[in-house]
């Protein structure tokens, strides 16, 4: 592998962008594929699957063996609201392999006693986002019920293209939220990406069960996510 490819892989990883290294196992020559870059048709299915699953593997194309090494950033869940649901969601999400961060300016809620061993940000989302900006490998779950806290990070998540954006609240609450987000300048396509009511419909009846529904919803969004659009077509 060429050192320039290694440097490019590391730069993409530092920037929390997905990248795949395609290596010809006959001679060791490698190329780097960024999400959204055009892919030769014989590799397209395998490359797209690897971008979604993060799984690396060998494939045979044109009687040759190739190795696809997928480097996906660790997905991060940002929970807006240090509520009961979050207390159940944080440990479960960690077990499932997510980095979890909890944001809530209400210090009585965002306390270490309620959230042991969790990255806790007892501050306004606005301040948190300045230090910890969102990216496409972040999921945002807003669960405070309070527009003062929830609206701004929801807007930021939609503008960033986070792979999952969910908001707690009844359909009536959500209808009002949609009005506010429209007034804030978001278009309907963006707003329609919000999962509301939040979580898979599993008839969850307790905060812990709602946390299961949210986590399942987030995993589904991650593994079926729409890949970045291809920037230009390959000349055939």
């Amino acid at each position: 592998m060429d050192a320039s490819i290694l440097k490019a892989i590391n730069a993409e990883r530092r920037g929390r962008r997905a990248v795949i290294v395609l290596t010809d196992l006959a001679d060791g020559s490698s190329q780097l594929i960024r999400e959204g870059e055009p892919i030769a048709s014989e590799f397209r299915d395998a490359v797209e699957a690897a971008f979604r699953t993060g799984k690396s593997g060998t494939i045979d194309v044109n009687d040759q063996s190739w190795f696809l090494n997928a480097h996906l950033p660790p997905p991060r869940i940002v929970v807006i609201g240090a509520v009961h649901i979050s207390q159940a969601l944080a440990p479960m999400a960690k077990i499932a392999g997510f980095d979890v961060e909890i944001v809530d300016p209400r210090t009585a809620f965002a306390s270490e006693e309620r959230f042991p061993n969790v990255a806790l940000y007892p501050e306004w989302p606005e301040d948190y986002l300045k230090r910890r900006p969102l990216d496409t490998f972040a999921a945002v779950a807003a669960v405070t019920h309070d527009p003062k806290v929830d609206d701004l990070p929801l807007q930021a998540a939609l503008e960033t293209g986070c792979f999952y954006v969910g908001a707690l609240g009844s359909r009536k609450t959500h209808a009002k939220r949609v009005e506010r987000l429209r007034e804030a300048g978001l278009n309907d396509a963006q707003i329609s990406r919000i999962h509301a009511p939040i979580g898979l419909d599993i008839a969850a009846a307790s905060p812990a069960e709602i946390a299961v529904a949210i986590l399942g919803d987030i995993i589904k969004a991650l593994r079926t996510r729409g890949l970045a659009p291809v920037q230009m077509e390959l000349a055939e």
């Binding site: 592998m1 690396s56 593997g57 060998t58 090494n69």
Partner: peptide
């Protein structure tokens, strides 16, 4: 040099990649 696990069968201790 860089060594990469490219294939595993059975209960391999470290995953592909």
């Amino acid at each position: 040099a860089l060594a990469t696990v490219i294939e595993t069968w059975g209960s391999a201790p470290r995953p592909v990649g």
